[in-house]
Design a protein around this nucleic acid. Structure first.
Lengths: 95, 95
DNA sequence: TAAAGAAGTTTGTTTTATAAACCAAATTAT
DNA sequence: ATAATTTGGTTTATAAAACAAACTTCTTTA
């Protein structure tokens, strides 16, 4: 009847992050922060969780002398997102 | 960009309950429990929250001598669900 | 060289989600 | 008749999550 929802994705901020990364394929911390409206602290924590789960890849580089945190989806993350969307449909009466 | 998600609906069990009630218009506690796979305790708590929010109506009646808890959506609940689904779309890249 | 800004991280608090334990009434078994 | 089980839940306790405030480090600007 109802398919279980991946708790890692069933979170407003993490879902926004993943949704964003899926469409852009690569984004920097401040950009994600701006687009999602998250605080830096919350975003940092949620990126960590997604990264630990292997859903995204976080690369800490430098842009000139400034630190630059680059995020991109992994294949695992993309698949998880697709599965999540499919599962959601069982709740939304969308065929 | 991303529309806020009503926290009352953005919960696996409460979403399942609402999704169920929207399609059947009325259901008893044990049926909801069975369909959602929830424990009675968890279901009881979540029904309370939905009821307190005015999203569902909970009527305690009797079926012969047995207690019978009947639940149905309210208009407010139906609207909230529709709004939630709309908001979700901003995360799913579904047009 | 002091102050302010950028880019994050860590820590602490408040909510949530959830199951275990509990309760009361009704039914079934002995 | 009464003990045990089932039904239909509620209350309570705990573990996890979400989140923001405070902090850190480096950099740029006054």
């Amino acid at each position: 009847m109802f398919q279980p929802l991946d708790p890692l994705l069933h979170s407003e901020l993490r879902l926004a992050v993943v949704s964003l990364l899926i469409s852009v394929e690569e984004a920097e911390f401040p950009y994600i922060k701006e687009q999602t409206g998250a605080t830096a602290g919350n975003l940092s924590v949620q990126l960590d969780k997604l990264s630990t789960a292997g859903y995204i890849n976080v690369e800490k580089t430098f842009k000139g002398k400034k630190p630059c945190t680059l995020c991109r989806m992994t294949d695992k993350g993309r698949k998880a997102f697709e599965a999540y969307v499919e599962a959601l449909k069982s709740y939304l009466n969308v065929t």
